[in-house]
């Protein structure tokens, strides 16, 4: 009797899963966890706050004492072309190198196999202008967002990197990069949309009962080294400034897909 029950049960489960899903093995009507790991590195080395010394293309040695950036507005595309946009309210994360708990945002996405992931490096313009009651969590100017918000020129700082360098006449450097394009008059827009192909380094197979992990490498050297190399000696302090667009253009290329843990 027990055996019959089990067999019947298994048959029902199989039938159900076949019925509800176009891709065998996945139930696209339910969501499963997908974590996206932002692994900060400097070239070939792991990034070590305060202690690691790295050299940029301009030949300048530097350390990193602070590294923080926002990632938001995640959109995933399945191998069959279906696009899933993660609900915006649960889709703002602040990656802080000094806080390991922030390195691996967990998204909830429908089961399936995904070929691309895209997200905003920064905070979209709409959220930059939204009513203060919608600025919660990492966007709360009294909380995690306090260090990442310009009070004098309303808007979030998307990317913040600071450190020491003998190349700077001050002995240190600070890059606070933001600018969402302006509210009533146009200004710089450093919002960067990143799209990464996932097919060559491992397609994530998202399924309930496990946590799939997309492991991304974030190479801060690329903030300096790009189509236009950034020199600490020439630009040691860059905040809300036209030159910030050069830095943002560089760091838009700092993230790559390394591997997937299914």
């Amino acid at each position: 009797m027990k055996k019959i029950c089990l067999l019947a049960g298994a048959a029902v489960v199989m039938m159900t899963s076949c019925k509800k899903d176009d891709t065998p093995g996945y139930n696209t009507t339910i969501n499963a966890p997908l974590s996206v790991e932002f692994d900060n590195i400097a070239g070939a080395a792991d990034l070590e706050l305060n202690t690691g010394t790295y050299t940029n293309a301009a030949g300048e040695d530097f350390t990193v004492t602070k590294l923080k950036y926002y990632v938001s507005n995640f959109v995933l595309t399945k191998t069959d072309g279906t696009v899933y946009t993660v609900p915006q309210d649960s889709c703002y994360f602040l990656i802080d190198e000094s806080d390991e708990d922030t390195h691996e945002p967990v998204l909830s996405v429908p089961e399936g196999e995904y070929k691309t992931i895209s997200f905003v490096l920064g905070v979209d313009s709409l959220r930059n202008t939204m009513d203060v009651s919608h600025r919660t969590g990492v966007l709360d100017p009294s909380g995690a967002g306090a260090d990442m918000y310009w009070g004098w020129n309303s808007g979030y700082i998307f990317f913040k990197m600071e450190g020491l360098s003998a190349a700077s006449s001050m002995g240190d450097y600070m890059y606070h990069i933001g600018g969402f394009g302006g509210y009533s008059s146009a200004t710089i827009n450093n919002i960067k949309k990143i799209t990464l192909d996932l097919t060559t380094r491992g397609v994530p197979q998202v399924k309930s009962g496990k946590e799939t992990n997309i492991h991304l490498m974030v190479d801060v050297l690329k903030m300096f080294n790009g189509s236009s190399n950034v020199s600490i000696a020439a630009n040691s302090m860059v905040m809300f400034d036209p030159y910030s667009t050069t830095i943002a253009d560089n760091y838009a290329n700092m993230i790559r897909h390394d591997h997937t843990e299914n």
């Binding site: 202008t129 009513d131 203060v132 309303s154 509210y183 009533s184």
Partner: peptide, 9 residues
């Protein structure tokens, strides 16, 4: 300088 566009901020 009009840097702030919402009284709440």
């Amino acid at each position: 300088d009009g840097g702030i566009f919402d009284l709440d901020l």
